[in-house]
Design a protein around this nucleic acid. Structure first.
Lengths: 225, 225
DNA sequence: CGCATCGTTGATCAATTTCAATGCCGGTGG
DNA sequence: CCACCGGCATTGAAATTGATCAACGATGCG
């Protein structure tokens, strides 16, 4: 679950932590590394910044007193995370894998001092609303197979690499994350994936490395007539 | 499910439709009546306006090809609905009961020509994101009783009127709307409500008129240890 | 007064959760 | 270098839950 050497080499300009609280600032002061499993912010924290995911994958979640957790979203490169309600964050956010984010002042959301940035963030907020609506459709599916199929297709659309024998998809998050994202148990996620494998829709060379062999078939699973 | 005379009388200035496409405009040209069951916009429509709910209740939903429907949200007075993605709406929106909305130009979201309005809309968007996250928590609950209890409590918080014997809650939407909102069948919603009634948590004088007698008990149902 | 729609209740069945055990892999330390 | 350990993934069997199908009741409206 760590960056492989070749992946790390894509970030030659990241040899240090450029935390925004750091005293010394470089030209990269707006970038911040988030090692795997480390929290970027927690529910209730003051929301000073929004974060644009540049590399890696973040995990936004809410945890209830009884321990149950809902994964709200996975932050992929291009996504903006950290939209606050009032002045505080209303989710936890941590990194699934080593990640890099670019910070933007929260005030840029409301002030028009930088119109370009402002438009960018506003549109990101609208995109976020729409993405959450998509997530609702996934969650409202009654069958586990529909949810998991829709999840795989969405992940493939965002991060998949098409190849000769299908779309390779890196499943960086753990099964329990997927389960908490889809409102299922980890066991059901597993079983559904093996089911897809036995149906020839996907292959799983490792638990993290999937390949969609039959996109149409998976689509049919995601949204049966 | 229609406005009663005394409720209608709260709107003395609304004797006509002031649709935004109307040629003749009065001082109330930014207000628009939406009769019960009428659509305010449909998925795919150009999003020229955002709508601030002033009176009544709107229903935002997405419908799939296979006919299944997910109710995304209920728009209550104070809510802004119609946040677009790109230039089009991505949900259907219709009125649960006779309603009144105030229109705001979509452009006000990105332009800062009117800073007050801009701030207002931006904050509404952020509130919307947070509300949808709350909705996720409801949907991710495994038990029907948790979902329905959480739904009732949320509705009570927004629209309930505290009284001597509990919190009176008007359930204006139909059972199927609640079901599609929570990802349940109408039958299960019914059964769960009856169950709550038999447990003494609520009363139901009519199908639309509930009264929460035991808030703590309902909270326990919504979020069991 | 009858019809249509919505709400409620009942019984059955399919699906998922839960509990339990095993397998797998990477990391660690001898 | 290899064996052990711990977390994660997977599989199995049983129990619970909600969906579905069906019928009935209530309510508002023509």
């Amino acid at each position: 679950m760590y960056l492989k050497p070749n992946e790390a080499s894509e970030l030659p300009w990241l040899h240090n932590d450029f935390g925004h609280d750091s005293g010394t600032r470089s030209q990269y002061r707006f970038f911040q590394r988030v090692p795997a499993e480390r929290h970027l912010y927690m529910e209730g924290d003051d929301a000073h910044y929004l974060y644009e995911v540049k590399v890696g994958m973040l995990r936004l979640a809410r945890v209830l007193e009884n321990g149950r957790r809902q994964v709200i979203a996975f932050g992929l490169p291009g996504d903006i995370v950290g939209f606050p309600q009032g002045r505080v964050h209303h989710t936890d956010c941590d990194a699934v894998v080593d990640s890099v984010v670019q910070t933007h002042r929260r005030s840029a959301l409301e002030s028009c001092a930088d119109p370009r940035l402002h438009r960018f963030l506003t549109r990101a907020a609208l995109r976020e609303i729409c993405a959450m609506q998509d997530h609702f459709m996934m969650l409202s599916s009654k069958l586990a197979s529909e949810k998991v199929a829709a999840f795989l297709l969405t992940l493939a659309e965002r991060t998949g690499t098409p190849g000769a024998d299908g779309i390779a998809v890196k499943i960086a998050m753990r099964r329990v994350d997927i389960a908490d994202f889809l409102g299922l148990s980890t066991e059901t996620v597993c079983r559904t994936l093996t089911q897809f494998r036995e149906m020839g829709l996907i292959t799983l060379s490792t638990a993290q490395d999937a390949c969609i062999r039959d996109v149409a078939g998976l689509r049919a699973q995601a949204e049966p007539a």
